[in-house]
Nucleic acid binder design. Structure first.
Lengths: 121, 121
DNA sequence: ATATCATATGAATAATTGTTCATATGTTGT
DNA sequence: ACAACATATGAACAATTATTCATATGATAT
């Protein structure tokens, strides 16, 4: 049941299973795409932002609401909302001084669900 | 078309739409769950790890292969593989000195797809 | 045993990032 | 115009993290 060792070269620095590396290299994602993807997931990689997103998946909320809900400073929440806005995960509407935030699309709910599915094994 | 401003309180530090905050608070995820989720997504929030995962979604590969493919040091790759192992995203098998890595389940492909869907708008 | 090779790992460093603090912007009501 | 309030933002600081460098481990072949 051993794999063919025939094409195991030396790995001085670089060379190995040349054929495989070449093939995978051809099918690899563009660097640009990978970086965009990383930025996207990075946004989900913070508890505060996840909580905000989860809260907004249930109801639109203003900044004060969110700060109270998460027991965090208005400033901290506002900074994070900016990140979420810039990555187009949330949108907002103004009503006087109050700004109401909500999810930008349902798409995000699905990402969330995939994550939860993995976490809950 | 104005929203009812009736229950807009003052936001001195904390109080606001009390009713909404209370309801959302009750339906909020456990802190433990949120942190696990954040850890999970954090792993996807790095270009190197994304490239590794994408490569492994096409074929199992050894450490040397990956280092060559991504033009990175063996050490850097090895450190990242450790992260991916610890979060159960990849598994490995040994054949002599060579260690072959592969995806742990197809689940990960789906997360990837969701991300790509968002990035490609 | 020893040399060689593939991989792993600890420590150090550089870069990134979340939160706080202080302050600015913009809106409402007087 | 002014005071009060909701939100936004820049700078500073602390914590986290990806990579490099040096070295360790474990396996093969001679």
């Amino acid at each position: 049941m051993k794999k063919e060792k025939d094409n195991i070269e030396y790995c001085g620095q670089t060379i190995i299973h040349e054929d495989i590396v070449k093939e995978i290299n051809d099918r690899m994602l563009k660097d640009e795409t990978v970086m965009a993807l990383a930025e996207f997931f990075k946004v989900f990689g913070d508890s505060t932002r996840l909580k905000i997103l989860y809260a907004l998946s249930m109801s639109e909320m203003c900044v004060c609401d969110l700060a109270a809900l998460l027991s965090m400073s208005q400033s901290a929440i506002s900074h994070q909302l900016k990140v979420l806005r810039q990555t187009r995960l949330i949108k907002y509407r103004k009503d006087g001084k109050v700004v109401y935030y909500s999810l930008d699309d349902d798409h995000i709910r699905r990402v969330f669900e995939q994550g939860l599915a993995h976490v809950n094994e």
